[in-house]
Write a protein that binds this DNA or RNA. Structure first.
Lengths: 179, 179
DNA sequence: CGACAAACGGAGTAATATCCTCCGCTTGAT
DNA sequence: ATCAAGCGGAGGATATTACTCCGTTTGTCG
């Protein structure tokens, strides 16, 4: 793959993610190309059918989030701090991508979802063992909470502000996750 | 206003709210009429321009939520329980309406927003006075949190399940709202 | 109970938004 | 220096959504 092709692919994904956040749903493809600073033909070469672009957005965000969860598990001293690290990372990577899932992208990437479930389950178990997390929450609860944190509050709110508010909500939520 | 006209107006609002939740945005108007069991002409008679339907949805939800907040303030024994009552009511009334705000409905109903702010501020003050709520949250924080709870998690998730998950999140959040 | 105005229904057309192809030009790799 | 891989974007095809219109139905009130 030529260097300019790879660069344009990344630019398209960045632009599309921004626009998803702005319009609250699948973006207009002409707008994606314009935002990315490439021609519409380039978009169609990289993402020929309508769903492949959305799937790529979700895959990239999910991959980053899963990696963050695994890293949090490996480096955090206890379950609570691992969960906090994971949740903040999920906000950073998931804003603008997560709310395409199940609305416009079906059953995304089973192997990534399995890795996510495994990491979250391990984090909860660690927290149960060290007594730093309440024991009445399931991995599914964490997933749902994560989705909620990653949903934009209002179309038009700048990304930085969305992010800041979401991080504060994560902090409050973490206080409620302690026994 | 004739009785059937009033009835159809309510049905249209109910149907539109459901559809907003299902599609995650402004619904197709033909679909709204069909769901409500009325003709498309009836919809256009009640809501001639595209935004009036959305505004009516938001106004109704906001009105109900504000009333709930004021009632919670009047009847709850302390700030924390007032906040909890308000948040649960907001989920019940706001699901399917709140995420139209600022995306598709501009600056909704200043007088209702003012009443909401006043009620929330009073609830927080009560909580500060009786020591049942943490003091580092603002009324704006509560509004943002409320919006987040009212956003649908996934298109296609049944309303009952959306509601149940949201109520559980409110409970966890309330635990984090204590000092 | 009858008369009338208010309200209704929904087929069909207009308006709009979105998609996507195609081919001459440009650029990175070797 | 060569050339294949990649790019741009005007413009026609297609789907979607909006809305009007008028014959029919239904509440209301004397």
């Amino acid at each position: 793959m030529r260097a300019d092709a790879r660069r344009n692919r990344e630019r398209l994904l960045d632009a599309a993610t921004e626009l998803v956040l702005e319009v609250g749903g699948p973006p207009n493809r002409d707008a994606v190309a314009e935002r990315a600073g490439v021609g519409i033909g380039t978009l169609y070469r990289h993402f020929p059918d309508p769903t492949s672009l959305l799937e790529a957005i979700v895959e990239r965000a999910l991959e980053r989030t899963v990696s963050a969860a695994e890293a949090a598990l490996a480096t955090s001293p206890d379950g609570a701090s691992a969960l906090r690290t994971y949740a903040h990372a999920a906000v950073d990577h998931g804003l603008g991508a997560v709310h395409l899932v199940h609305a416009h992208v079906e059953r995304p990437h089973p192997e990534l979802r399995a890795r996510a479930d495994a990491a979250i389950t391990a984090i909860l178990e660690r927290g149960r063992a060290d007594g730093g997390l309440r024991t009445d929450v399931s991995a599914a609860d964490i997933v749902f909470a994560t989705i909620r944190f990653c949903r934009p509050l209002a179309v038009g709110l700048p990304l930085a502000e969305e992010r800041a508010i979401a991080h504060r909500h994560v902090d409050t939520w973490m206080d409620g996750m302690k026994p």
